[in-house]
Amino acid sequence: MTARLDEQLGAVRGQFLAMQDHLVAQLRVMGDPGRDSAQVQADVSRLDLQIDEAERAAVQGVLRLLALQSPVARDLRLTVLILQSTPDLERAGDYARHLSRTPGAAGPEGTLVLGDLTLMAATLRAATLPGDAALAAQVRELDARVDARFEAAMTDLIGQPGGPGALAAAAWWRSAERLGDHLKNVAVRLEDLYT
């Protein structure tokens, strides 16, 4: 029974990690200055579909594991963490897709935030296995930096005349801030699990 539990938990963990890998890839594609914006948008959308597929597989795997294997202790906590966190990663992928629709809308400061978000996603992935609470804490710190840049950008946008460019920039910033929040949510759960 333990071998079967380990096998099923490994499969679920693999889907959870795949979601994170695809999210990191989305952000890296957007940060590549040599790519055509239409190709970036297509690649980000394709990766978002892969995140959605991995989410479905992870949730089905978790439900099957809970029903058939009855995990306990740390295995149960990891299983619940995955079940709680897959929606956050799925939404983060959606926000990455939103960001890809308006490249450059946030100007040079947006490029810095995109770099922070990419670092957040990669750090979260590194924190997940083998399980590092200190790396998860770094994700929270990076989110605080993204939030501060978001607040400054919104203050600047409020002081400028409106128009389509300002609306696109505001939407871009909101998506970036929300993406960071979803990554932070997962990081907080990881910190709780691994401390």
Rank of each mutant, 00 (worst) to 15 (best):
residue 43 D to A: 15
residue 43 D to H: 12
residue 43 D to I: 06
residue 43 D to R: 14
residue 43 D to Y: 05
residue 44 V to C: 14
residue 44 V to S: 13
residue 44 V to N: 13
residue 45 S to V: 09
residue 45 S to E: 15
residue 45 S to I: 13
residue 46 R to G: 13
residue 47 L to I: 13
residue 48 D to E: 15
residue 48 D to C: 10
residue 49 L to W: 12
residue 49 L to P: 00
residue 49 L to I: 06
residue 50 Q to P: 00
residue 50 Q to I: 04
residue 50 Q to L: 15
residue 50 Q to C: 08
residue 51 I to L: 13
residue 51 I to T: 11
residue 51 I to P: 05
residue 52 D to F: 06
residue 52 D to T: 14
residue 52 D to K: 14
residue 52 D to M: 13
residue 53 E to I: 01
residue 53 E to N: 09
residue 53 E to M: 09
residue 54 A to S: 14
residue 54 A to F: 14
residue 54 A to P: 08
residue 55 E to P: 04
residue 55 E to T: 13
residue 55 E to F: 07
residue 55 E to W: 10
residue 56 R to K: 10
residue 56 R to E: 15
residue 56 R to H: 12
residue 56 R to W: 09
residue 56 R to Q: 13
residue 57 A to N: 13
residue 57 A to W: 05
residue 57 A to Y: 10
residue 58 A to R: 06
residue 58 A to W: 10
residue 58 A to Q: 10
residue 59 V to T: 10
residue 59 V to C: 01
residue 59 V to R: 13
residue 59 V to D: 08
residue 60 Q to T: 11
residue 60 Q to A: 11
residue 60 Q to F: 07
residue 61 G to F: 06
residue 61 G to K: 12
residue 62 V to R: 05
residue 62 V to N: 04
residue 63 L to W: 08
residue 63 L to T: 02
residue 63 L to H: 10
residue 64 R to D: 12
residue 64 R to C: 04
residue 64 R to K: 11
residue 64 R to V: 08
residue 65 L to S: 08
residue 66 L to W: 01
residue 66 L to F: 04
residue 66 L to T: 05
residue 66 L to K: 10
residue 66 L to I: 11
residue 66 L to G: 09
residue 67 A to Q: 03
residue 67 A to D: 07
residue 68 L to D: 07
residue 68 L to P: 02
residue 68 L to Y: 02
residue 68 L to C: 08
residue 69 Q to A: 11
residue 69 Q to L: 03
residue 69 Q to V: 00
residue 70 S to H: 15
residue 71 P to W: 03
residue 71 P to A: 12
residue 71 P to M: 09
residue 71 P to I: 09
residue 71 P to Y: 06
residue 72 V to E: 14
residue 73 A to W: 07
residue 73 A to S: 12
residue 73 A to M: 05
residue 73 A to G: 02
residue 73 A to F: 09
residue 73 A to E: 07
residue 74 R to C: 00
residue 76 L to K: 04
residue 76 L to D: 08
residue 77 R to I: 02
residue 78 L to V: 06
residue 78 L to F: 09
residue 79 T to K: 03
residue 79 T to N: 03
residue 79 T to D: 03
residue 79 T to V: 05
residue 80 V to Y: 05
residue 80 V to F: 10
residue 81 L to R: 02
residue 82 I to V: 15
residue 82 I to Q: 01
residue 82 I to C: 03
residue 83 L to P: 03
residue 84 Q to N: 07
residue 84 Q to W: 06
residue 84 Q to L: 11
residue 85 S to H: 04
residue 85 S to N: 01
residue 86 T to P: 02
residue 87 P to Q: 06
residue 88 D to L: 03
residue 88 D to G: 04
residue 88 D to I: 02
residue 88 D to Q: 07
residue 88 D to V: 08
residue 88 D to Y: 07
residue 89 L to T: 04
residue 89 L to K: 04
residue 89 L to N: 01
residue 90 E to P: 00
residue 90 E to N: 04
residue 90 E to H: 03
residue 91 R to F: 05
residue 92 A to P: 04
residue 92 A to R: 01
residue 92 A to H: 00
